[in-house]
Amino acid sequence: MAECPFCRTEVHNEATICKSCGAEKVDTFWGNFNHNLKKNQHAAIRILAIPGLLVGALVGVSVGTNTTAFIGGIAFVFGFAATVALPSFLRTLIFERNKTYWYR
């Protein structure tokens, strides 16, 4: 039996949610990544939005001038998304890989 770190209630090892307080147990890479992305999304967008837009625009323009504007637009979107999501991905990969965390 595991113990919920928030309310100290015993939780079955197979359970993913504490029935007393609703805390969620996550033990997969993508689950931890999703929680990190949600937690850091507002700060990442504030801090990295302008550099992400610039990187995305530069890649989009350079790709778009060599091929078509549609591919440049796709490159712009991927450049912006990668700039915003990269910090959460690296944090999860380095610090929270194969670990169990509880989130509320």
Rank of each mutant, 00 (worst) to 15 (best):
T9M: 07
A49F: 15
S20Q: 12
R104I: 01
A85L: 14
N13Y: 13
N40G: 13
N40S: 14
P87T: 09
V77H: 06
F33I: 02
M1R: 08
A81F: 13
T16A: 00
T9G: 06
N13A: 11
G56H: 03
I45N: 03
I45T: 08
N66S: 14
R97I: 00
S88H: 07
I74M: 14
A43I: 13
G64E: 04
A49P: 03
V77K: 08
H35Q: 14
N66A: 12
H35E: 14
A49S: 14
W102I: 04
I45A: 12
H35S: 04
T68E: 05
C7T: 07
F33Q: 03
S88L: 07
I17S: 08
A85W: 06
Q41D: 06
A85G: 11
R104T: 07
F6C: 07
W102Y: 04
E24H: 10
L90I: 14
I47C: 12
S88V: 06
L37Y: 12
V11Y: 05
I71F: 11
K19T: 10
F78Y: 13
R91H: 12
V55C: 02
A23L: 05
N66F: 10
V11R: 01
A81P: 06
F70T: 14
C21T: 03
V26G: 01
A43H: 10
L58C: 05
L86K: 05
N40W: 04
A49E: 10
K25W: 06
I45W: 07
I47K: 15
A44R: 08
C21G: 03
F29Q: 05
T65V: 12
G64K: 03
P51M: 09
A75E: 12
G52N: 05
E96L: 02
C4R: 02
H35D: 09
F33S: 01
L48V: 04
F29C: 03
F76G: 15
E24P: 05
N98M: 03
E3V: 14
G73M: 10
R46K: 15
W30D: 08
F78C: 10
F76K: 10
Y101D: 08
A49K: 07
A2R: 13
E10P: 09
